[in-house]
Amino acid sequence: MIKLNTAKDGETGWVASIKGNTRFLNRITSIGLTIGSEIEIIQNQEKCPVLIFNRDTVIAINRSECEKIMVEVIER
């Protein structure tokens, strides 16, 4: 299990846990990220938000918010 901000381009996996205050949880679930949902890392470069693909949508998430999201990477 790794933090989302340490994931590498092209990795796929599913969301294992999300931490944070009510507002953050509200925001992140309403855009489609829930526990168990599948994601693919599209681009993760230093100092830029992390780009992921989830439920047919490309989503950009700020790096510090990514630290609150744990991902179980699926080995290929």
């Binding site: 507002r23 925001r27 855009i31 938000p49 490309v58 989503i59 950009a60 700020n62 510090s64 918010e65």
Partner: peptide
Amino acid sequence: DSDRSGLIMELPP
């Protein structure tokens, strides 16, 4: 403060 929470945004095609 809650508005300051970092970007969570859809990148539309």
